[in-house]
């Protein structure tokens, strides 16, 4: 079982983001050839069966995913609000260019993503390397490090964060033990985003688990060979571990960037839904919510949603383009 899982991780980076007929068809060919002679009735029965098995998904795809996507694109060219709306062309998109709060929210989201994701992955990789040494109690540590990423998305944790980084919160209480007078971190625009970044870094557990699975996959003989060549710990890391781990790093990077662009709950709770102080935690998603579901400018909000999608798509594409230069897929095919 474990072997199978890990193998999947390795092939995943190529099949997930840009799926060009992935491994889906790989196991199929043989039996197909064997049955071909029996005739078309079986095949058509199989098709009908497939249709029936797939029907919930098809319906969901149309009604919940693709339909709304098309509608959202259309709405972004209207001033739809509260049941009425008219076609206004590209006005929403033009308005974006001149909207200081939108610019602020893009900036906030970008800082959040590009600071927290590298830190989070560095922590995840670092801890994974430590844990991979096969020390006793390793599974206990792994559990402890993983727990925050399960809980991190909940409102309860955001509430806790708000207190922990408040002016009389846990952090300042601890600082006071060292004679340092802290301040209200969540209520200062220079630091509020920082507390959310720390929160995201805190949930490094799940990328860590993926790194662990990847590390487990590196054949010991590579290390032995490097050792024979006289490579020290650092050389072995740089020359063996890191290159062989690049597909996993890449995969985590893509995934975490996509996730952080969509963060909502934590900023919403910590700032009481306002994205404050002084718009310093106004994530794009918060601004979208504000426009779409409190001001009910659903046309404009749809345009913002497409901006978000475009940003995510561009960075994912960039990631894939850049991956050619640093991701090492080896010769495992």
């Amino acid at each position: 079982m474990t072997d199978n899982d890990v193998a999947v991780v390795r092939t995943k980076p190529r099949s997930s983001g840009a799926p060009p007929e992935p491994a889906a068809d790989a196991p199929a060919p043989k039996p197909e050839r064997a049955k071909r002679g029996i005739g078309t009735t079986i095949r058509s029965r199989e098709r009908w069966a497939a249709l029936s098995f797939m029907s919930p998904w098809f319906l969901g795809l149309l009604a919940i995913t693709v339909g709304p996507m098309v509608a959202s694109f259309y709405l972004s060219f209207t001033d739809y609000s509260l049941g009425v709306g008219e076609w206004i062309g590209t006005e929403n998109y033009e308005r974006m260019l001149d909207d200081p709060r939108l610019a602020q929210s893009v900036k906030v989201t970008a800082i959040y993503t590009f600071v927290s994701v590298p830190l989070q992955l560095a922590a995840a990789l670092g801890l994974a390397l430590l844990l991979d040494r096969g020390l006793r109690g390793m599974s206990f540590y792994r559990s402890v490090f993983y727990l925050p990423s399960l809980l991190g998305a909940s409102v309860a944790i955001a509430i806790m964060w708000r207190q922990v980084f408040g002016s009389e919160g846990l952090v300042n209480q601890v600082l006071a033990l060292f004679g340092i007078q802290g301040q209200g971190w969540v209520s200062h625009p220079d630091y509020a985003l920082g507390t959310l970044i720390i929160l995201n870094v805190w949930t490094f557990g799940s990328p860590m688990i993926i790194f662990l699975a990847g590390l487990r996959q590196i054949p010991a003989m590579y290390y032995e060979a490097a050792k024979v060549d006289g490579a020290g710990v650092i050389r072995r890391f740089v020359n063996v571990t890191l290159p062989l781990l690049t597909p996993i790093i890449f995969f985590n990077l893509v995934l975490q960037i996509i996730n952080s662009f969509q963060s909502f709950t934590q900023a919403f709770i910590v700032s009481s839904g306002k994205g404050g102080p002084a718009d310093s935690t106004l994530f794009l998603t918060l601004y979208l919510y504000d426009q779409g579901f409190t001001k009910f400018n659903m046309g404009y909000a749809s345009a913002i949603a497409w901006l978000l999608l475009a940003i995510i798509a561009i960075f994912t594409a960039l990631n894939f383009l850049m991956s050619k230069f640093w991701v090492f897929y080896g010769d495992n095919d």
């Binding site: 997930s16 992935p22 197909e32 095949r43 797939m54 969509q262 949603a305 978000l308």
Partner: peptide
């Protein structure tokens, strides 16, 4: 099961994993 377009649908399915909920939430709401 084998059926026409399986590969394409599989790709679409994978794509929807990555689709941000924010893009579809407004029409869904409507």
């Amino acid at each position: 099961l084998r059926f026409p377009g399986r590969g394409a649908f599989f790709a679409i399915m994978l794509g929807t994993i990555m689709l941000p909920i924010h893009v579809v939430i407004i029409p869904q709401y409507i």
